[in-house]
Write a protein that binds this DNA or RNA. Structure first.
Length: 339
DNA sequence: ATTAATGATTAGGA
DNA sequence: TCCTAATCATTAAT
């Protein structure tokens, strides 16, 4: 019972400001007897609240309007917002600052590099040009394939953009809708602009995660397309017979050291009308495959050795003792031993 | 339909 | 950087 007067004091403090809008008896309590009068006032207010459902709709509306127009209303609203802000912030103030998602950045960079998300036409052609350069100038036959590739890429690009736009639009629509709703509600319950802002950012986060999924699947599609069209392994053509002969000739005549110099590679590349890189690939493959199974290549080795021997003897002393290709000559045996 | 051959790519080492 | 070794993906042969 001694608790009561103290609690009442704080309430009375608000009431004692003497607003014209407050019920008459509440102001009367200030001057009169201390304890009993206020208890009476509280009882009245409670009574009013209990019977509020009995009031007519118009009456309630009028009361609400009066409350909204009250000159202390903005201040009270701010106080409530502040209190709410504090509690909300204390609940989840930690996860406010979000660093830019590295995953998303990776996807963005890749889409940009592939010319999907870049400027309208320039990016695509640049990527195609880079791809053409990377595939090696094996001939003029790949222009058709590249146009096919470009067509598919632009298809992906178009889908990506329309989807992205759809998401963007949906996000904006939803955001404005929510904002309007919140603004409307902020007339009747404490919602600060900051809170609306936070809500908007939450919505944006949700939508951007959806966008990330779109980016992810677009990246996958591009990767598949790339491997489908741009991987040189997929459109491999065997070298022509003549080129293979030239390469084998060099290989077997340098069997003790089958590592052509840069100049030798260039020469071979020119003679075979392939690139230096292809020459290097060929020698790399040949060396390892020869080493792995010398027996299998024995016949081939004999053949080329014999051929060079024949051409050599023919060239030097127009001789007529033709070596049969099936009989290994001394040069071959020598080379085998050295290896 | 399988299998071998072959050109290209990749990881990892000196 | 160039090499080896393993592997991939296609072509040629069976």
């Amino acid at each position: 019972m001694d608790e009561q007067p103290r609690l009442m004091h704080s309430h009375a403090g608000v009431g004692m400001a003497g607003h014209p809008g407050l019920p008459q008896h509440m102001q009367e309590g200030t001057g009169g007897t201390d304890g009993d009068g206020r208890k009476q006032d509280i009882g009245d207010i409670l009574q009013q609240i209990m019977t509020i459902t009995d009031q007519s709709l118009d009456e309630a509306q009028a009361r609400k309007h009066a409350l909204n127009c009250h000159r202390m209303k903005p201040a009270l609203f701010n106080v409530l917002c502040e209190i709410k802000e504090k509690t909300v912030l204390s609940i989840r103030g930690a996860q406010e600052e979000e660093p830019p998602d590295p995953q998303l950045m990776r996807l963005d960079n890749m889409l940009l590099a592939e010319g999907v998300s870049g400027p309208e036409k320039g990016g695509g052609s640049a990527a195609a040009a880079a791809a053409a350069a990377a595939s090696g100038g094996a001939g003029a036959d790949n222009s058709a394939e590249h146009s096919d590739y470009r067509a598919k890429l632009s298809q992906i690009r178009q889908i990506y953009h329309t989807e992205l736009e759809k998401y963007e639009q949906a996000c904006n629509e939803f955001t404005t809708h929510v904002m309007n709703l919140l603004r409307e509600q902020s007339r009747t319950r404490p919602i600060s602009p900051k809170e609306i802002e936070r809500m908007v950012s939450i919505i944006h986060r949700k939508f951007s995660s959806i966008q990330m999924q779109l980016k992810q699947s677009t990246c996958e599609a591009v990767m598949i397309l790339r491997s489908r069209f741009l991987d040189a392994r997929r459109k491999r053509r065997n070298f022509n017979k003549q080129a293979t002969e030239i390469l084998n000739e060099y290989f077997y005549s340098h069997l003790s050291n089958p590592y052509p110099s840069e100049e030798a590679k260039e020469e071979l590349a020119k003679k075979c009308s392939i690139t230096v890189a292809q020459v290097s690939n060929w020698f790399g493959n040949k060396r390892i495959r020869y080493k792995k199974n010398i027996g299998k290549f024995q016949e081939e080795a004999n053949m080329y050795a014999a051929r060079t021997a024949v051409s050599a003897t023919n060239a030097s002393a127009h001789g007529s003792q033709a070596n049969s290709p099936s009989t290994p000559n001394s040069a071959v045996l020598l080379l085998q031993l050295q290896k």
